[in-house]
């Protein structure tokens, strides 16, 4: 992948992929610097279990997510990292038959307490999906919708500011009334990010936001994340370990377990500073995964 991020304070990290016995010695550079400001705990998951019907999907997840940091959730397919991400803004509530056990705190409040309004949760904790999902309407209407349902007045200045923040303004300023489906995939995804920040969330959850995009659009979005993290807290699920190493300050590695009991659920194997996870993983499974022996 080209190193086009030279303006940003990050450096590209190379991860040895399948180089045999030489374990984790190759990552050459450190993870990006944390932006200034407080890095207090935003989310704290305690003994979190998650079920789809009777099938357990996550077991005993204990993790903290910090403010003004990018936290990457990595792991093999089916390890529950997307499920965990969707627990953080109660998006899983929309799927019939799901159940959460344990506790997730958002600023020390129980996110799943019975009197918490899940609509307000989703307003404060925005989400960008794997596949760009703009509304089948104009670019402007895509941005207006979230503001309207949240009682924010959608002014022209606001739309410009939001699109500038999402580094989309220069590309779309002359076609705000055009159908959002006419944009390219990368532009659509940045529009979805713009739509998410237009409602002023505190946290942005990103579920493999670049998996449907080409490398150039991917880099544009990674640059954007680096800028956004000064104001927001970002949690990103990614299949791409280079991406995790490039953009995240903290990494949580999920893996699949329970096969010996005929089950299959995700567990959190290890979490910590990205640099540590990629250079000196404490868990054998992490080591195997990031060196390409597994997954």
């Amino acid at each position: 992948m080209p190193d086009s991020m030279s303006d940003s304070p990050t450096t590209t990290t190379q991860v040895a992929a399948g180089t045999g016995d030489e374990l984790v010695t190759t990552p050459t550079a450190s993870a990006p610097k944390r932006p200034g400001g407080s890095h207090g705990v935003v989310f704290r998951a305690t003994d979190l279990d998650f079920y789809y019907g009777k099938a357990r999907a996550l077991k005993d997840v204990n993790v903290e997510i910090h403010r003004h940091e990018i936290t990457a959730l990595i792991g093999p397919s089916g390890c529950g990292k997307s499920t965990f991400l969707r627990c953080l803004n109660r998006m899983n509530d929309l799927i019939p038959g799901t159940r959460v056990d344990g506790r997730i705190e958002f600023h020390d409040q129980d996110l799943y307490a019975s009197d918490i309004d899940s609509v307000d949760v989703r307003r404060r904790i925005g989400m960008v999906f794997q596949k760009p999902n703009p509304f089948p309407k104009s670019i402007k209407e895509n941005l207006n919708f979230g503001m309207k349902v949240n009682g924010i007045k959608p002014t022209a200045e606001r739309i410009e500011a939001v699109l500038r923040k999402a580094s989309l303004w220069d590309e779309v300023k002359d076609k705000l009334d055009q159908d959002a489906f006419a944009l390219s995939g990368g532009q659509q995804q940045r529009l979805c990010i713009a739509r998410a920040i237009a409602v002023e969330p505190e946290v942005i959850l990103m579920d493999e936001p670049c998996s449907a995009l080409d490398p150039i659009s991917t880099l544009a979005i990674e640059d954007l994340m680096n800028e956004l993290v000064t104001q927001y807290t970002i949690v990103i699920v990614t299949h791409n370990m280079q991406q995790a190493a490039r953009v995240s300050h903290r990494t949580a590695f999920f893996t699949v377990a329970g096969m010996d009991q005929g089950e299959r659920y995700g567990v959190l194997a290890e979490h910590g500073d990205t640099e540590k996870i990629f250079t000196a993983p404490a868990d054998k499974r992490t080591q195997d995964y990031i060196t390409g022996r597994f997954g």
């Binding site: 803004n89 998006m91 929309l94 609509v119 999906f129 979230g146 739509r195």
Partner: peptide, 9 residues
């Protein structure tokens, strides 16, 4: 889901 993720009911 995109709409609900923006805080729509």
């Amino acid at each position: 889901q995109g709409a609900m993720a923006l805080g729509a009911t």
